[in-house]
């Protein structure tokens, strides 16, 4: 499966990755070959095989509905680049 330049650009956009124009062709070749590799699995007959969400047979463990966390706001916000009145500040996001 071949990805063209616009596919690569939109994938980069979705992943919020900045890529330089001169690398786009290289990425499209590399990503296409990864898809080709995965494509080979379509040759395998999977009739009667249950879809697998996880590689193990384990099932989800549950926790009791108990509040175990206390307020650590100051510690957790120590690395935030900007904050005010207990809020994380981010570039304006109004659509």
């Amino acid at each position: 499966m071949a990805l063209d330049r616009s596919d690569v650009k939109s994938i980069a956009d979705l992943a919020r990755l900045a890529i330089s124009d001169e690398n786009i062709d290289k990425y499209s070749t590399e990503l296409s070959s990864i898809l080709d590799l995965v494509e080979q699995m379509n040759a395998v007959n999977t009739d009667g095989v249950q879809p697998l969400a996880h590689p193990t047979d384990a099932v989800q463990r549950l926790r009791a509905d108990v509040v175990t966390e206390s307020n650590n706001r100051e510690k957790y916000m120590a690395n935030a680049p900007a904050q005010e009145e207990g809020l994380f500040l981010v570039p304006k996001v109004v659509e």
Partner: peptide
């Protein structure tokens, strides 16, 4: 009482980010 995947309180009206683990 607690969140779906963590032990933080879900109580309404607390000071900002005091119930974020």
């Amino acid at each position: 009482k607690s969140k779906i995947f963590s032990g933080s309180s879900t109580a309404f009206g607390a000071d900002a980010n005091t119930q974020a683990s």
